[in-house]
Design a protein around this nucleic acid. Sequence first.
DNA 1: AAACAACGTAAAGATATCTTTACATATAGT
DNA 2: ACTATATGTAAAGATATCTTTACGTTGTTT
Lengths: 73, 73
Amino acid sequence: MSVIAVINHIREIRRKKGITQIKMAEDLQVTRQTMNAIEKNKYNPSLELALKIIAYFEMPIEQVFILEEEDDE
Amino acid sequence: MSVIAVINHIREIRRKKGITQIKMAEDLQVTRQTMNAIEKNKYNPSLELALKIIAYFEMPIEQVFILEEEDDE
DNA sequence: AAACAACGTAAAGATATCTTTACATATAGT
DNA sequence: ACTATATGTAAAGATATCTTTACGTTGTTT
């Protein structure tokens, strides 16, 4: 069996930009728990939040979110 | 008040490509009711489904999904 | 050591996304 | 008129996304 999953590089990008989870959550108008859960891949952001994130980072979506094919997970 | 909303151009793109809702739903492994609801902007796709859709169309995300700022809706 | 900032996490509840089943409408072809 | 294909829609239920509240850990600074 194979499973499709989305992973993200938010944490690395955020840190590279020197932004805290708290500030980013405030800027994007979500709670820091939400940002934390998304960074730790506990669940995916909604499309709306994902679009806000790539706009916030000013980066193409492929550099932030990856649609991955995994095996047996 | 202002509201952020995501709209999409899936229907136009799909028709331009001559694909039916039914075939697209099968190819993307969702129900046609889901594709119908998304096309009619009843709700947004998940990020995972959105990424599958732009891969399916082979188009950049900005040409399919638009993050819009609306007034008082 | 005490204080502070950033991050981790958990549980309960609200709303959004998606499936299944079912029925209905519209259009085209025979 | 009948059949087939594509699309619209609704209701019930499952799971995902996100908030609120709350408490815990880690590292840094004074």
